[in-house]
Amino acid sequence: MKNYDIKKRKTLAENIKLFEIEAPLIAKNAKPGNFVILRIDDHGERIPVTITDSDVENGTITIVVQEVGKTTKKLGMLNEGDKILDVVGPLGRETEIKNYGTVVCIGGGVGIALIYPEIKAFKKAGNYVISIVGSRTKDLMIFEEEISKMSDEFYITTDDGTKGRKGFVSDVLKELIDDGKKIDIVMAVGPIIMMKVVADVTRPYGIKTIVSLNPIMIDGTGMCGGCRVQVGGNTMFACVDGPDFDAHQVDFDNLIARNKRFLEEEKVSLEGLKNG
């Protein structure tokens, strides 16, 4: 039960890698919106990553990770056949999947891969799915084929215009709304600032908007309160009350500040890794 072997590893874009990890119990119970917490080695930090797919038969889960700091870079150095010391999950509440009518799914950066399970599930539940995905530049675009296959409408944006439209995912969303498209729900996963802008776009129209928040976590079971976020004036623990929340109620500025609380230490860690 305790062998979290890496069965497959694939580079999707610069600094973005996909892993299939052996974890039969997690695979069996994983639902869209769930995540795992993993620890690479005995000295390692516990970090949360979304389950983007699971294969019950083979007993594996798929994760897609962007290298941003020491732990994600160490993960990126692992190969097929290597083991991860600890993987626990599936954690968090699952995304509420049902037939809403028309759903807009928005993914930014590595968030494109993370919203893929929701796109699949919304489609399966009978929704009309509009997917909007955005990255900084063409080379960072991931999961294009998978998502386009599952979507009734599919839009790509890049910040520099090297692929799809030049601009942001929120621009496309705004246009759809302005064109009078009837949208029942919007779900957005990506950089906090992107989720904040999406919330600002839909707020005046009262379109229900769900975001998947990514605060710093430790245990992932509601024990430490490190992952707390402010939602509608209340303090919530994202690992057990979320990670999905009503975007119009989230205090994004607090989340942005809280995710920077260990910036200096993260730099020290990364330097340590570079210098061996």
Binding site: H43, G44, E45, R46, K70, T71, I218, D219, M223, C224, G225, G226, F262, E265, E266, V268, S269, G272
Partner: peptide
């Protein structure tokens, strides 16, 4: 959180241990 970082994750030995 404070005690878990220190005890379980050994943050008092940061950066030898990764958790700050």
């Amino acid at each position: 959180e404070f005690l878990t970082r220190i005890n379980l994750m050994k943050a008092y030995k940061f950066p030898e241990y990764d958790t700050p």
